[in-house]
């Protein structure tokens, strides 16, 4: 056979191989896209027949391990989600440093563990819709939400050396001026506000809600000054997991069950 004919034959073979590869890729893509149009399947998302949840149970009131008994907002939320999906919940307690490894190596199906959304991790994991925001709240003794601009020159109470302390320093370096009123504990800062010895308090949201729960007669208004939304982490695949999870969260929001769980552990 002439060299040119052999070359033609080889080129034809390569073309056919490339076409076959392209078709396979197209088919795989179409299959995945088609799968995502179908209703999510619990059996595909949770093949063990249970939802295996990784949690670091050392963050009350979100999760606490009391001699093997798990309790907290995250634990109740996990159980409510499992109930929505119709599967049992099984917990695996881990240290913080083991959480994401356990998820990416499929030792657990999802993580519900007071996890802030971390954009840097989204190559490996996806996050659900947020279910709680543990950022910093700016609280005032007033029926309407506070305005940071209106607080210029006023006394702001906060916990010494906390994230609120850092936030105030950041605002000050941006040109805002306040009278800084540091206290040893968050509850003292909130006492100062409640006793009208400060114009506002800047405080971790959970600490604020818990304090307000202890003082139901106190009329305080608040706004978030910094956000720290907590969400549930899952692997990228199967796609069904996140869809089931977000649907369950939406149902819990709709029914008021999520608000009831949050109110029970933190306050509303």
């Amino acid at each position: 056979m002439a060299a040119t004919a052999r070359k033609k034959l080889r080129r034809g073979k390569i073309k056919r191989l490339l076409a076959a590869a392209a078709l396979t890729l197209l088919a795989a893509g179409a299959f995945l896209a088609f799968q995502r149009l179908l209703p999510p399947q619990p059996a595909r998302a949770f093949p063990s027949g249970a939802i295996v949840i990784g949690v670091d149970a050392s963050f009350p009131p979100f999760a606490l391990d009391d001699g093997g008994n798990l309790s907290g907002l995250d634990i109740d939320l996990a159980r409510a989600i499992a109930s929505e999906i119709g599967l049992p919940a099984r917990f695996v307690t881990l240290s913080y440093f083991g959480l994401y490894d356990a998820l990416t190596t499929s030792k657990v199906d999802l993580l519900i563990s007071a996890l802030p959304i971390e954009p840097g991790r989204t190559d490996d994991v996806r996050y659900s819709q947020p279910y709680f925001d543990n950022g910093l709240v700016l609280a005032v003794n007033a029926p309407s939400a506070p305005d940071l601009q209106a607080l210029a020159g006023k006394a702001i109470a906060y916990e010494y050396a906390s994230s609120a302390d850092s936030q105030l320093r950041a605002w000050e370096s941006g040109g805002s001026h306040f009278q800084r009123r540091p206290y040893e504990l968050p509850r003292y800062a909130l006492d100062a506000l409640r006793y009208e010895q400060a114009g506002a308090a800047l405080i971790e949201a959970t600490a604020f809600f818990l304090y307000r729960k202890e003082h139901p007669a106190w009329a305080a208004a608040y706004t978030y000054a910094a956000r720290a939304p907590y969400a549930i982490a899952v692997r990228h695949e199967p796609w069904d997991t996140l869809r089931l999870l977000d649907a369950a969260l939406a149902a819990l929001k709709e029914s008021g069950e999520l608000a009831r769980i949050i109110d029970n552990w933190v306050g509303s």
């Binding site: 010494y160 050396a161 540091p182 206290y183 040893e184 100062a192 006793y195």
Partner: peptide, 30 residues
Amino acid sequence: QLKPIYYALQAHARGWESETRLWLPPPEKN
């Protein structure tokens, strides 16, 4: 951002007088 503990440790290490009152006393109801 230097945290308050940085300043406290700096005062110790360098033999500076540190602030004696880093926070206010617990507030009392008027």
